[in-house]
Design a protein around this nucleic acid. Sequence first.
DNA 1: CACCGTCAAGTCGCA
DNA 2: TGCGACTTGACGGTG
Length: 439
Amino acid sequence: MHHPKISGRNLSCIFTLLMMCYYSQMIGYACLALGVPGSNLKTTILKHATQERLYALIGLNLAALEVLLDYNIKNGIRLFRISSDLIPFGSSAAKSLPWRTHFAEALGQIGGKIRSSGMRVSMHPGQYTVLNALDPEVAKSAVLDLDYHCQVLDAMGLGPEHKLILHLGGAYGDSDAAKARFVSRWRDLNPAVQNRLVIENDDRIFTIRDVLDVSLRAGIPVVFDNLHNAVNPANPCQADLDWIREAAGTWKGYVGRQKIHYSQQDPGKRPGAHSPTIRVGPFLQYQEALGDVDIMLEVKDKNLSAIKCINCTSNRGIAALEVEWSRYKYAILERDANAYQAIRRLLKDKEAYPALEMYQLVEQALDKEPTAGSAANAAQHVWGYFKDRADKAEKRRWEAAMRRYQEGSGRLSAVKGVLQRLSMKYGENYLNSGYYFAL
DNA sequence: CACCGTCAAGTCGCA
DNA sequence: TGCGACTTGACGGTG
């Protein structure tokens, strides 16, 4: 029998290919993106939620979601949480609207993009969806809310690997009874909902131990949330990785890949508050040990942190870093001219891939408050895009806002507001898809 | 056009 | 007993 020679190099290539097929950790973000024009969801207040208004909003929101998905695909983001606000009042005022059939085409198209790109999406009913409530009316609304979320994914033609994440609910002074009530209410759920449901530890009532207990009794996969566990620990001595390994067992035999929620504490805020951005250094330390687990980031700067973490965990080429730099540059110039120059130098070597170094310089710079001088300098650079196009009224508005800012009587946000309106009006895509207006 | 109170959900903790 | 925090940005009315 003839055996082809397999060199070490070939073996490692084969290994890499296998890893790409079977081991592809995804990193994603939740609900909304910064610096993506046309991706904002709209809603209304209940008082004004007429049928017509709801239809109009749903149409707009589906279009916005498609913009977001296109953006995700283009940027290599393959894990995403769809906002519950997609269908405003989806479990109450819009419940009787036949939005599934009315928007069947858009929903199908969205689902097609998700499937063909290999993206995995989820939805996450919030803290007000309390399945284990003592009040049966509250529990009934929770069921309706879960049905609504499930219907969104169903209507997109997405399989049960696209999950619904839920907290256990309230304790009502008797945590064991509350957990038992969750299990029994779960048993009564529609199987379509059951197949998608995943449970998560929260930051004040149910720890990861509680959630794993419920999982053992009902057979529900578990999402471990690191910050919730830090704030509301099951056992302060037990390492996150041990919980994550235990949670891994809850996914075996079910459709879907294990996922965790990862966030970092905002140092200036209440325990459990999400940080403005993910610090890439600590993230990498955490991520390295994880193995084949998807990571949903919960962080204020959303897609920015997702792209940062993706770029720092795989080599996507210098061009990917240059794209990022083009988005960050005016936000950096606004705060730190030295960092601006340092990053430009860093990106000169086209053979290198200095992702970590670049993002650490970005983080350093964004930590600084803009000085009046540096902010004005950056604003002048941005004004350069419009100074030859702006009409007289626009020039006046720019000059007035700038003068007031430099005199100390006006805010920087007013100056940037003028620039942003110009950028929208003139369709200056380079600025619209950058982070200068968002950070 | 900038500003800010309000919204929508339910539980829990603290006066 | 009742109210504020939590979460979230955007709505929508005011000046």
